[in-house]
Design a binder for these strands. Structure first.
Lengths: 211, 211
DNA sequence: GTCTATACACCGATAGAC
DNA sequence: GTCTATCGGTGTATAGAC
């Protein structure tokens, strides 16, 4: 049917333009900073005037929202990729997850600020865009549960430690490895704490002392 | 001398006005958010027009800079206050420092954003304003050194852990205690790791300086 | 010295012509 | 769909009143 084809082509074109807008926004964000992205700059990069963007996006924050969803979706894919050939002990798993998330986070300051910090004044992610972020945490929770780590506090502590290392790295030694070097040590000390607690409650699920 | 008195009085008045401006900025920041502070709102609160502020401050970022210095100076005083009757073992000391810094940070979101996050787009603290922040870290370093903890990595890890807990608390459970409850556990596991390493390096627990 | 009015350049967003 | 014109908002520079 011709009508359908036409409509598909139009939708496809629309999609492409939207992609170009987001790509332009990412480029500007990584060049001059996330908060320094302006609609006029985005428009100029895709060959438009600023108001024309509004036929493709609802607002500037909608652009941030789409970028937020993109970032966390990409993160989710990276973390899901780890489930292919997973390590069979807790320590190696948490080391791998920590390093993967760390490297992903540290590889783009603008993206990390969008994902994890509130560096854009008025922006609050929509529930739909927030979903993949929740899923990343859910995947981690599920993975940890297979090793018997199920308590909220245990997961919270792991998340806080890894997040703290990421933040410290980006804030104080951007492009360096000063905090990255501490990842394995931090995980080991966390796992040791878990083992100790598991021993106390006689909930031993993993063999330890590999290293 | 009359001249001197007059000049003193003028300077005093100037100082007072400056204080009022900063107080107004803090008030607005805690009410509507740090980035939502506008010169016109500050001016209105101190009974001025926006441009008049420029006779007392150099720019809006200069206001942020002064607030940054205030915040870290206050933090320094709080942390210095702990040196009055200090605990005599490492664990208790690090627990105390962590909890004190945590509670200080968590008690004002706007202040924490200004001190530790880059939530204000164009703002970068001046070296003078940054000084008290460095001093806080220096005081911690000195305190830890009295217990033989001198390596940069050891201090870095402690800072990252505490900072990670603070960020997680403010980002995910503002006003709650979900991550605050993990403070002692985190410190204990950190101290245990230190002890283990001190044992592993057999001889020197204190003379492990690096870089 | 303090403050004001005015003005400028920039921002996100809207209205309406083509 | 894209444009121009414009609105209300921002930080800030400056000239001049008191």
């Amino acid at each position: 049917m011709l009508g359908t084809t036409k409509r598909d082509r139009a939708a496809e074109r629309r999609e492409t333009t939207r992609r170009e807008i987001l790509d332009a926004a990412w480029a500007i964000a990584s060049e001059v900073g996330l908060a320094q992205v302006t609609l006029r700059d985005i428009a100029a990069r895709v060959g438009m005037r600023a108001p024309s963007l509004y036929t493709h996006v609802d607002s500037k924050n909608a652009i941030y929202d789409a970028m937020f969803a993109q970032a966390w979706t990409e993160c989710l894919e990276v973390m899901r990729g780890l489930e292919q050939n997973p390590p069979n002990d807790l320590r190696a798993t948490l080391r791998l997850y920590a390093r993967t998330f760390f490297d992903f986070s540290v590889s783009s300051l603008a993206r990390h600020q969008l994902m994890n910090q509130r560096t854009v004044p008025g922006f609050e992610p929509s529930p739909e865009s927030y979903a993949p972020a929740v899923e990343v945490l859910g995947a981690l929770r599920h993975r940890m549960a297979t090793f018997g780590v199920t308590s909220e506090a245990d997961v919270d502590l792991y998340v806080a430690i890894v997040g703290g290392l990421v933040d410290a790295q980006l804030a104080n030694d951007q492009g360096g490895e000063r905090w990255r070097r501490l990842l394995d040590r931090a995980v080991d000390m966390y796992v040791h704490d878990l083992d100790q607690r598991a021993g106390a409650t006689s909930l031993h699920t993993t063999t330890e002392d590999e290293r």
